[in-house]
Simulated assay, not measured.
Amino acid sequence: MQVAVWDTYVTKKDGMIMHFDIIAPEEIKDAETIYNYGREYLKSKGEEGQPLTSEECTFCHIESLKPEHEEEIKTKGYYIVEMENC
């Protein structure tokens, strides 16, 4: 399966920058759907309400889905790769 990687940088409530990638099936072309995935993730981290738009989240590239992420993609529709300050 091919997935799209959306590079995301969100300013946290404490002012630090949170960097994560949103991984979703490549056929999802609607950016608002991707942003909603990111907002769901932010809520799970106590960062609900922080801006997440095209300013913070942009399409990066297509890659092959890693087997260890397949189950989460199937159940939630997306996967988050935490990179910095998550």
Rank of each mutant, 00 (worst) to 15 (best):
D21P: 02
P51E: 09
S44E: 12
K66V: 00
M18T: 04
Q2S: 06
E47K: 01
E27I: 05
E82T: 14
S44K: 10
L42E: 03
S64G: 07
K45I: 12
E40F: 02
E32Y: 00
K45T: 12
K12M: 07
I17S: 14
Q50S: 03
E48A: 15
D14H: 11
K45C: 14
K66G: 01
E72G: 00
V5M: 04
E70W: 07
K43R: 14
E84D: 12
Y35F: 15
K45D: 03
E72L: 06
M16I: 00
G38Y: 09
I28M: 08
N36H: 08
N85C: 02
R39K: 15
H61N: 08
E55M: 00
C57M: 05
M1I: 01
E56T: 06
V81T: 07
S64D: 11
D14T: 06
K74F: 11
I80L: 04
I34C: 04
I80S: 02
K76D: 08
S64P: 01
K43Y: 07
A4W: 07
T33G: 01
C60V: 03
Y41D: 07
Y79A: 10
Q50R: 14
E70K: 10
V5H: 05
K76C: 08
T53S: 15
I22K: 00
D30M: 07
K45V: 13
E27H: 14
R39P: 06
F59K: 02
E48D: 13
N36D: 14
M18W: 15
L65N: 08
T75V: 14
T33S: 04
G49N: 06
A4D: 13
K76S: 10
E63G: 01
M83G: 01
H19T: 07
E48M: 08
E84T: 05
